[in-house]
Write a protein that binds this DNA or RNA. Structure first.
Lengths: 206, 206
DNA sequence: AGGCGTATAGTCCATGTGGACTAGTCGAGA
DNA sequence: TCTCGACTAGTCCACATGGACTATACGCCT
């Protein structure tokens, strides 16, 4: 019943962040903004509070107690459930091979390190097929339009898309190669441990 | 009072289409889908009906009478008002120089032919500055991360963005050049007239 | 002639999102 | 010491979107 409703990119970011440590909602907001994750998706407070509530309702995360610091309003700390952990992985697996909805893909790429190297390579291969097909479709569309005498000014956006698809393909092939030959460190096992500790503590205890 | 609320991409497409001819909502749906404009933005019926209602409320378009063909349910035909015409132009002027929110930009680019050549060139120049700045920011961000020992696997998405920014810059410079030296026909005056007539009639009388 | 599928035309509700608003607390300066 | 502004933490409402649902009419096959 949980993974029936599709996750939003914001939801994925929240779950992925909770993977690192339990925290309360306001801290999520701060942390995500500090890390500039709003460069991918606009992170409004309202949205984040709503999303956390939904995720709790759907059993992907749960309250882990209420604490109050000093005299401030008490705040509810949340923890990631197993279902949540799995949901992130599944979402990445779904979105990583996609080519449309590019912000979903960017988020998926940002969270791809939650998956194993081989997994990612396979997903990128599927994506590659779509990229090639789409580039081809754009080219034939442009040719057809040219033949039918469609003025070029109406095709400018399509031309751009074709150009960017080429660039994307080149970039992705380079990434895939580095993943396949092992020259790019990947996954939790290959994170230098000094960095693992640093990650959360640095921002949560300023 | 009208242009206070920002237009959505769907709204812009609707207004731009009404520029060509008056039509009723269902026809808008069909036409936009036939032209594959849903490649830019998902075009749901619900969304379009709602959007048209909003646009009417805001005085950007208006009823142009109700007709019934044969015995079919009667349908309301809408016409574009002057405020609507201006709103499209303004929207394009706002979104064309932007670099984030890339689907807005793609729509703006698709509708850029509603603006004059020089206008577009100037807007693209403003956009170019942002592209250059963003590319630079990404590069320094990557350098900084490398120095601080951030594992590369966390920076993959940023690397991609940097690569795509380069490609975008190259594409845009090429377009700008063709606009500036006149080698790309632009604007309503430079559409071959056989095509102008063809455009609406072909799809509305099948 | 009757029935079935598809096209036409549109409504409605659940979900998601963004911005405005509330309200208490801490720190710095007049 | 009082006040003002900024930070903390969160609620609430209006708007946008998507999908399901309704209902009639037309064309085609049998």
């Amino acid at each position: 019943m949980p993974e029936s409703t599709r996750l939003t990119p914001v939801a994925v970011m929240i779950l992925a962040t909770l993977r690192e440590a339990d925290m309360h909602t306001y801290e999520l907001v701060r942390l995500l903004r500090e890390r500039k994750d709003d460069r991918l998706v606009p992170l409004q407070k309202g949205t984040i509070y709503h999303t956390v509530a939904r995720l709790e309702r759907d059993g992907l995360l749960a309250e882990a107690g209420v604490d109050r610091e000093g005299n401030r309003p008490e705040r509810t700390t949340y923890t990631l459930l197993d279902a949540g952990r799995r949901a992130v992985e599944e979402w990445v697996r779904t979105e990583l091979p996609q080519i449309e909805r590019s912000t979903d893909f960017r988020v998926a790429l940002s969270e791809a390190h939650n998956l194993e190297r081989d997994d990612v390579v396979a997903l990128l291969d599927r994506r590659r097929a779509l990229l090639v097909a789409s580039a081809h479709e754009h080219r034939t569309g442009l040719d057809g339009a040219a033949h039918r005498g469609v003025p070029e000014q109406f095709m400018v956006e399509v031309q751009r898309q074709a150009a960017l698809l080429d660039a994307e393909l080149a970039w992705q092939d380079a990434l895939r190669a580095r993943l396949a030959d092992g020259s790019l460190a990947w996954g939790p096992d290959e994170i230098p441990e000094h960095f693992t500790k640093e990650r959360v503590s640095k921002e949560t205890t300023p």
